[in-house]
Each structure stands twice: as C-alpha cells, then as structure tokens.
Design a protein around this nucleic acid. Structure first.
Lengths: 219, 219
DNA sequence: ATTATTTTTTAGTCTAATCTAAAAATAATT
DNA sequence: AATTATTTTTAGATTAGACTAAAAAATAAT
C-alpha cells in the first residue's frame, strides 16, 4: 500500500512523463507538486527502492510497469469520480478537479467497480480525457482537430493540416510546435474562437487556426 | 482545518461521550482508536489547545460546542455516504462502514450538499442511525422496538408494548425502566435473541422480550 | 491508613514528509 | 578549456503522530 504523498508523486510523475518520456527531472516534479527539489529527490529515492520507478542520480525518474499501473489506477479513480460529480451531482466541469483530487485516494476496489457500473462504463471524463480500464490501459485517442476539443480539455499538438509558411510562422510566434501542450480555457459557442494557454501565456485563437491544428489528448 | 487524525479523534470522542457524558478518559479514547493511551493524551492536549474540547488532567475530555459541531459534520458525511453506497451502488449495509470511514474526510461543503440532494435528503443511514443536518443537529428518532436494533447500537428505553405485571416484574428484576440505556452487545441471526448491557451488567434477552420494549436511539 | 493496583501522564525515540543551506554535478558561456 | 550559472543532491533540522518505558496520580484493597 502507498501513502497519500506517494500516490500523488506517482500520479504526477506519470503525467510529466507524457511530456518528457526520457525521464522526469526532480525539479519538474517539485514544481508540479508545489514542493522543493530536495523533497522530490528524497521521495524519488524512496519510490525507487519500492520499485515503482527507476532513478539515476542527476538524470531523472522513469516509472516502472508497476508504477505505471499504480498511476493509471489513480487516474482511473480521479476521472470516474469526475464523471460522477458532473453527471450525477451536476457540478460544472471546472469545479470538480479539487474534489476529485481527494476522492482519487479512496481505497476500495469494489467501490470503483460499482461506481463505474453505476455511471454506465464511461470511456472519457467530463474534460474528454480517456478513463483507463482496470488493467491500466488507456484507449489511445486518435488525433483530432483543436477545434473539436471542448473547454477545459488539454492536448498535445501532434501536427498541422495546413503547412503554409505563414501559418507555421504564426504558430512559431506563439510558441506552438509539435509536442506543445495546449489547454482550452474558453471556447466561444458563436464563432468557435477560443482562448488557450501554452505554458504560462494565454492566446486568442480563431476558428481558422483551430481547424488546422491536430491534437492528441493526453493520458 | 483539521488533520485526518484530529478528525478521527473528535468523531470518536463524540461517540464515547454518548456513553459517558461526564468526560471521556484517554484510555477509552485509546482503545476506541486502537492506539496507546500516551498517544491519546498527546492528541487530547493538542485538541484542547485548539478549543475543540476541554480537558482536565486525569479527569478526561469533553467536546466544546465547536467540537460537537465538527463531530456532527463528520458523522453527517459518513452517514450520507453510507446511504449512497447502499442505495445507489447496491452495497450491503455491513460492507459500507470502512469505505465511509474514508469518504467522511473528503473536504467539500458543496459536495455534501449536492450528495444530500441527490439522495433525496435522507434522515437516517442504512443502519437506521439519524443523519444530522448542516447545523449539526440530530433529529430525535422516533421510538422503535428493541428487536429492530442491530448489534452495537444503543438506545434508551422509552416504553413497553405489553404491560402485563409478569413482564414488568421481569424488567424490574434486570434493572430496566424508562430512561435506562441499553447497548446491544450481540444479536443472534437465527433466533433473534440478544445479549445486552445495562450499565455494568449484561443480560440475555429473547425475541419475545425485545419485541415488547420501545427504544429511542441516541446520537 | 497504608499498601497495592490501575489509570494517566511525562520524557525520550522513531518515522514520514517536509524544509533550508551547502555541496556536488551538469550545462552554458565566454 | 576555464569559468560561470544552473540543476540536483546531501546533510541536518523540523513537525505530526505514534511508540516504549518510567513516573505520578487516582483508585482499590488490605
């Protein structure tokens, strides 16, 4: 069994790994978990002893298969609870995250199985992110246009539809490239324009742009 | 805000207080929480500083009004979640306790309000125990037959169904009268006989007796 | 009323998880 | 290549919560 702190580290290392599969730095972990790098180092060393990740000094951490399954289990719980909160308790999609952050740590296999059945075996959460199955497998979502994503969803840019240099320059100017993570903050129902965030900065995007960017929603 | 450990102490002290309103001993607390008396002393001293209880060395602890409200809030959450688990996820009443022990610590006012509405504002949990309202008040439950109580429940004798002198003498002999507190120690599923405790003494009671005594369950 | 027993508290350790400050390794620049 | 800057790790301290062993208070028994 793992402590709450350990679970949070494993889950966040999993997410960070999507962005840097070669290994996650203790600094990145510390920033994600809002803690100090030295604390992250300590925990990573402990988790390495517990075999949930491999860790090479100064090089970073990588989850083992066991660690990956643990992370998927937590994410599974988080997303199922989010579906419950939105579908059954009628919360807004942007209100559920911090409650699900707590609920994801409830320990009971039976509870999650029954919750999943109660919700009708949903495949995605209210943000459109896939819900892994009991064995920790994420159904790969195929790439889709940025314009198809909804408010609150995030994804990684995996390609462009149009490739004129004007367009590529436009993207470059805003720091959008293959591998860039984009979060949809707002989406206008009338003209399909959207406000997105890339790292720390925010941008306003028209339909013409969002219809030419291929995205993949992340695990 | 209170830690998980603090919440568990407050909740359990509340329950123990029903049985000994003059003050709860650190030994009793330690036993209930499956910890050592010295740990209980430490925590009780800390909680006294936080004003959730008053504590006199060697005499025991008593919740303050603030402490009582905190305890009621936790019990409220526990019991609402139990209703959810039984009514919506179709758990058996005896499977839900340990899951509810975890869920009762989820911090979100909005969550509990919505859960309560979703469940149709139930007044009792699956064990028949009352669910306190948002302000921490327990609605007095109506009287029910002793035979309807389950193992571990306690109540106060509020009347008799049959009033033959034989029966009344039987009760008198065992020290049972209006106002007497009775705890169900054991209940046999086969013949519905039960072992009860009254003050310090224990008695064996047949179904015939338990079906003729009206009880009121306490908080 | 004085012992003996039980209950309760204190004092000192221990572990998990964090922090600060300093040292060591890596990366970037001249 | 040498120096500077950044990243990462180590060492030592801190806090919450629990534990053991011993002391002190309360209760029970002689």
């Amino acid at each position: 069994m793992f402590t709450l702190a350990e679970e949070n580290y494993v889950k966040n290392i999993f997410h960070l790994q999507q962005l840097s599969p070669e290994g996650v730095s203790t600094n990145a972990i510390a920033e994600k978990l809002d803690t100090k790098p030295s604390s992250a180092t300590d925990m990573v060393q402990k988790l390495a002893e517990k075999k949930v990740l491999t860790y090479v000094k100064y090089k970073g951490a990588t989850l083992t298969e066991e660690g990956r399954i643990i992370a998927a289990g937590i994410i599974r719980k988080h997303r199922l609870w989010e579906v419950f909160l939105v579908e059954k308790l009628h919360f807004q999609w942007d209100e559920v995250h911090e409650i699900a952050e707590q609920l994801e740590h409830i320990q009971s296999e039976a509870l999650i199985d029954r919750l999943e059945a109660f919700l009708g075996y949903p495949s995605v959460d209210p943000h459109g992110d896939p819900i892994p199955d009991k064995t920790g497998n994420f159904k790969k979502t195929e790439k889709k246009l940025l314009s198809k994503l909804r408010e609150g969803q995030k994804g990684i840019c995996v390609g462009v539809k149009e490739s004129s240099s004007d367009f590529l320059q436009y993207l470059d100017k805003r720091g959008i490239a293959i591998g860039t993570e984009i979060v949809i903050l707002e989406k206008d129902a009338f003209d399909d324009s959207m406000t997105i965030s890339i790292g720390q900065s925010q941008h306003f995007i028209t339909k013409k742009i969002s219809e030419n960017l291929y995205m993949q929603t992340v695990d």
